[in-house]
Design a protein around this nucleic acid. Structure first.
Lengths: 319, 319
DNA sequence: TTACTTGCTGAAAACGATATCAGGTCAAGT
DNA sequence: ACTTGACCTGATATCGTTTTCAGCAAGTAA
């Protein structure tokens, strides 16, 4: 494979000149530029980017940490990220963690090793301080509220989102409201829990721990949830559900066991996925793709350090 | 940031020795190894992998080309690929193409530039010959039957899969069978079309072009399909559907417009996604994750050049 | 005239690792 | 005593670029 040296020899110029042609530097005479271009053509020369990476210290690669890529939530986020990455001529390195800390650390390590120029962490299980300590090696963006100015962040105000969903259900007459999350110890779940607690306190409603459903993430989890609901003596009359997939699952199963929606059970999903639209599921719209785009721009340092996105309630037929 | 030279100076040894320690070469005395390790500890040294890449000519990176990462089919495939990648200490570079040739070419280009060690193409729109020509620069694996020995491939026998679905429907009394695909000019669609044509010919059934539905890929496309069915004077009595998502969409909408499944319309999905299981949709099981794992192993040259996977019919309640 | 810019050129020094090679010691085998 | 081979060491070349720097010619300003 031809190198820049071969080109130089072939064109009868120095490697510097070749490099200049390759990088569109202005100070090259027309004649020499032509010679070099011909040599490139002739040898079918291609840059060895690894040499460039070494020399420049950048790789045009951004790491994206996410627990699973097979979930619509992250897939949509990824779509936004990918869109901007493409626009800025960056490539993405996917780091699927399954929430294993070990793998998240691997991603941080890649940043330190200069294999990636920046890191976007869509959801974490690692300690935030640990992550922050790696900002020394490159920009890191996370999807949650952070204190301090080392990390950038773009995130949904889950507290606010949950509050408005709760308020809406309360307005429509519901007092026995439950909710589900994908993992109780996740950052967004904690915010949701806080909103829930504050809401109950404000309305002087009792706190029912059995109204909180954990590990609800996929469409098929909706079935589990319906089964559990069916077994309850005093089930909730309304549910704010992890996301639209689970909500769709609940909706699909509920009818089969005689739980009519919304009469017997009102539901609100999250994300406002096309699926929710089609099935008429009320949902909290989240600008996921937009958020993804923002995340990438932040990774490149082209955007403010901190950005909050707000969810908006889309009323359909399930409340 | 410390380099191998700094370590050498600090430990009072040569860079060669440091390199040997770093790479677990046996010929290093206990004392020197200890000195080097201490220096590493002290300086918090971290390898610059870009230098390694340049020197070794490999990057431990494999490119994965797929049209969309937000579809369960590809997400599952990706999961298998990621599993093996992790096992072999490789990272994946995601190249989302949206079926734009331009982007596929970019992926090929990365291989040529040595930014990735191998390329896995899950679905393409580029010309196969063009792709083949890039095998000169590294292993390429595709998901379809190929002739020649340049490319590796792992794929589903869609012809056989479609045949068995058709046979099953025919056995259960259906003569008016239609089907849907995601894009008519895709490789797998052509195989399906061939199976369909051959089946109709064998059974001496008429060919109905309006029984073929294009651009059906997502859950919400099921709604479009039901709308179209509803408008037909002589609709099919059975459908073999692109995948389980679309099938679920059809199932969800069909009831609303009075199309009972399976009485008025029998359906068979593809992929045997958990969703199909939950909703009781008959489906062609495809070992997607396994196939993904195989793809990766092929990319590393650790597996045969050619591997066919077979789909198996899972009978549930929609036929 | 001097001095200073602008345009162009190439030699050589990086970047930070690994690989090659030559040379050393020391014990075992003949 | 002499070879052989295992073990250990480090100088130096190398991977393929970009960057720095020095230099030259020609034009312009003072």
């Amino acid at each position: 494979m031809a190198t820049i040296k071969d080109l130089a020899k072939l064109a009868g110029v120095s490697v510097t000149t070749v490099s200049r042609v390759l990088n569109d530097h202005p100070y090259v005479s027309k004649e020499k530029r032509k010679l070099v271009l011909e040599a490139i053509e002739q040898t079918k020369y291609e840059k060895n980017v690894n040499a460039v990476h070494l020399k420049t210290g950048r790789t045009q690669l951004v790491g994206v940490v996410l627990p699973f890529s097979d979930h619509p939530y992250f897939a949509q986020l990824l779509k936004g990220i990918a869109k901007q990455a493409f626009k800025h001529n960056y490539k993405l390195v996917l780091i699927q963690t399954d929430y294993q800390e070990k793998r998240e650390k691997e991603a941080l390590h890649m940043l330190r090793q200069k294999q990636i120029d920046a890191l976007i962490i869509c959801s974490r299980s690692c300690d935030l301080d640990l992550i922050t300590s790696y900002t020394l090696y490159g920009p890191i963006v996370v999807c949650e509220k952070v204190h301090g100015d080392k990390l950038s962040s773009a995130y949904i105000d889950h507290y606010q989102a949950f509050q408005s969903a709760l308020a809406y259900l309360y307005e429509t007459g519901h007092q026995k409201i439950g909710y589900s999350v994908s993992r109780l110890d996740g950052t967004s779940s904690k915010e949701r829990a806080a909103a829930y607690r504050d809401f109950l306190a404000a309305k002087e409603l009792p706190c029912r721990l059995d109204y909180v459903f954990d590990k609800m993430l996929y469409f098929e989890d909706g079935e589990t949830m319906v089964t559990q609901l069916k077994q309850m003596e005093d089930p909730p009359s309304a549910l704010i559900i992890t996301n639209d997939q689970v909500a769709a699952g609940v909706m699909t199963c509920a009818g089969r066991v005689g739980i009519n929606i919304p009469e017997k059970l009102a539901i609100i999903g999250f994300d406002d996925h096309p699926m929710a639209q089609m099935m008429g599921i009320s949902s909290m719209h989240i600008p996921l793709e937009e958020m993804g785009e923002h995340l990438f721009k932040q990774a490149l340092g082209k955007e403010s350090k901190d950005k909050v996105f707000h969810a908006t309630l889309i009323k359909r037929e399930t409340v």
